[in-house]
Design a protein around this nucleic acid. Sequence first.
DNA 1: TTAACATATGATTATTTGTTCATATGTATC
DNA 2: GATACATATGAACAAATAATCATATGTTAA
Lengths: 117, 117
Amino acid sequence: MSEKEEKEFLAARDDVVKKVLEAQPDDEILYDLAELFKVFGDSTRIKILYSMFETELCVNDIARLLNLSQSSVSHQLRILKSSKLVKFRREGKSIFYSLDDEHVRAIISMGMEHVEE
Amino acid sequence: MSEKEEKEFLAARDDVVKKVLEAQPDDEILYDLAELFKVFGDSTRIKILYSMFETELCVNDIARLLNLSQSSVSHQLRILKSSKLVKFRREGKSIFYSLDDEHVRAIISMGMEHVEE
DNA sequence: TTAACATATGATTATTTGTTCATATGTATC
DNA sequence: GATACATATGAACAAATAATCATATGTTAA
């Protein structure tokens, strides 16, 4: 590369960087996005989410199903709740959890497609 | 709840648990799925991925763009590479990275929709 | 209101992980 | 080959986090 070409290359890169920077969402949004994926990024939580793919389950169901302590399930459900990934309703002594919306299913399905390649 | 109702309730729950267990993918798959989302679950990596949404970038571009050290970017790109989320090509001294496939964009977009609610 | 059951939560601990610093590898130009 | 530049990598350290244990809260039925 000649010296002139070199200069042009650098200027071109600067241009690209500047444009990308303008198109980039606010840091805050990207931070929230990462936080969201972090919730999906634990195998216990993924198992819990997946078990609710077709039906609602109570805490005890999940604990037995996945061979986890009640405490552990409860802790994880709290995280899933606060990320709005699951909703719940009380019925007597039990509390039934289910996936909050179609986004959750869609995100998991997309991930599955990538993994199953 | 009468004692009989109680018994029926427990039997019904057992049934549900059994059915869910049968429908659940292998642990190995769910583990891989969690590992995949874990990669998306860091704000530095999300920023890197997002910056490549429209165009390929070299390591130095990304470092300047996101105000990160070259080393840090390189480490993260290694993780993104091994998860098959980005591909790359060499051009002279530089190495240009880009998103590997449409799944990556789709997963990020889905996440964005959830976050932006 | 007490006993029994279901779920939630706080503190502690062990593990995982992202960044930094130093250095190595790879490429082009002289 | 020597130099300069771009990227990769290994080791070490600090911060984040999931499981466990103990205990608290909430609900039902006697």
